[in-house]
Structure formats: C-alpha cells, structure tokens
Computed example of a mutant assay.
Amino acid sequence: MSVRLKLLAAARNSALLESRFDDDRPLDAAGWFEAERAAPALCRLAAAELRYCSPSARCRETGEALGLRPLAQPALRDCDMGRWRGRTLGEVTAAEPRAVEAWLGDPRSAPHGGESLPAFISRVGGWLDTRPADDAAGLLAVAEPGVIRAALVYVLQAPPHAFWRIDVQPLSVTTLTSRSGGWDLQLET
C-alpha cells in the first residue's frame, strides 16, 4: 500500500509578511486574491479523498478560498512559540537577545516556553505516520510553511537545524509519498 500526500502552503497574510511568530491572523485581502487567482491551477487538489488543514485561520481560509473544505487537524498546528506568540523576531530580539541567541544556536532549546524544534518536527512526523495506508484518491493538507518545513526535515531525516534552510512559498505544493512505512519527497514538473 502507498500514500500520496500533497502539502499546500497557506496563502499569505500580514503576519507572514511581518514575520510574526505563530500569529493566528486570517488571510488579508492580498492573500484572498492570490488564493482565488491560483484556484484554477490548484483545483486538481480537490480530487483528494481526505483533505486536512492546520487549525489556523489562514489555513482554513485558504482551503475555503480554493473550495477544498479541509478538516482541521490539531497535530498540524504551527510550532508553539510560547510567550513569543504574535511577536516579531525583531521585538523578541530587542527584549530577550540571549534567549533568541540560544534558540537559534540550539534546536533543542525552547526559551520561549513553547515547543523545541525537535518536538515540533516529531509531532508533525507522528501525524504523517498515522495517515491511512490506502489512498486511491490521495491526501491533501493545507498547512503553515513551518509545518511543511518540519514535515520535510522529518521525511528526509535531516538534522533539526536544516529546518531553517527550507523556504516554503505561499500556495506552493509539496508531494510526499510513503511505501512500506518510509516517506519520500517527490518533485513534480
């Protein structure tokens, strides 16, 4: 049995543009416009038998704009950034420079009081590993860029610091396949 999972990055919002930590803002007007403009090219994703999304407003609204009607999955929420939630990196760096230095230097640290990077990657990987084994019509998840980066680090068995080297653009699609319990990254043209 095999699994084909397409990960669709949510459309943008103002929090993404401002680089805010885990800020549950809805899509802004530009995000809605981009999602609606991309809908004809992404309509093939509606063929997925099972459609999921991160529980954030941005992911739910991206799914709605594309007519996907995804089911929110708590395991697909973005990394828990604790007391840094909703703040920009600049704000946190100004207030807690040593904490930011520790966080960027050691993926296992969580000076913000939330999840460490390995815990986040493990949570997303655990969700991947519990997907149904027979997906004749495929699976889809509309997710935050961080969730997709965590999934890729997990699938590729890369070290946690590789998370920072993956760039996920809004409305991009990443395909993962699984056979015999292991996951592969599939690049499409």
Results as ranks from 00 to 15, higher is better:
97 P>S: 14
155 V>M: 01
44 R>I: 11
168 V>Y: 10
156 L>M: 15
67 G>K: 08
48 A>Y: 06
35 A>P: 08
106 D>Q: 04
129 D>A: 04
171 L>C: 01
117 L>T: 09
48 A>T: 07
67 G>D: 08
48 A>Q: 01
138 G>T: 06
54 S>F: 02
7 L>T: 00
32 W>R: 15
137 A>P: 08
163 F>L: 12
139 L>N: 03
41 A>D: 14
160 P>V: 10
116 S>L: 04
37 R>N: 10
82 G>Y: 07
118 P>C: 01
53 C>P: 07
96 E>V: 12
15 A>F: 01
137 A>F: 06
124 V>P: 00
54 S>M: 02
149 R>N: 03
20 R>Q: 05
68 L>H: 02
145 P>S: 12
48 A>G: 07
34 E>T: 10
46 A>Y: 00
150 A>L: 05
72 A>L: 08
127 W>R: 06
70 P>A: 08
109 S>M: 09
111 P>I: 02
23 D>P: 03
44 R>Y: 14
20 R>H: 11
85 R>M: 09
5 L>K: 06
75 A>H: 05
154 Y>H: 15
74 P>K: 03
103 W>V: 07
111 P>H: 09
8 L>S: 01
159 P>F: 12
152 L>K: 07
56 S>N: 01
155 V>C: 09
91 E>N: 08
112 H>I: 08
100 V>H: 06
71 L>I: 10
83 R>H: 13
105 G>N: 08
74 P>T: 09
133 A>C: 00
74 P>L: 02
59 C>G: 00
156 L>K: 11
115 E>L: 03
102 A>F: 06
40 P>A: 10
74 P>M: 00
174 T>C: 12
64 E>N: 11
53 C>H: 02
177 T>P: 08
20 R>L: 06
111 P>K: 11
10 A>V: 07
86 G>S: 09
81 M>S: 04
149 R>I: 01
143 A>G: 09
47 A>Y: 00
51 R>N: 13
113 G>H: 11
26 P>Q: 12
20 R>W: 11
98 R>F: 12
71 L>E: 02
110 A>M: 02
52 Y>L: 09
73 Q>R: 04
124 V>T: 05
160 P>A: 05
147 V>Q: 09
62 T>H: 02
159 P>V: 13
132 P>K: 07
127 W>E: 01
179 R>G: 06
45 L>D: 10
126 G>E: 10
118 P>H: 06
167 D>E: 15
11 A>K: 07
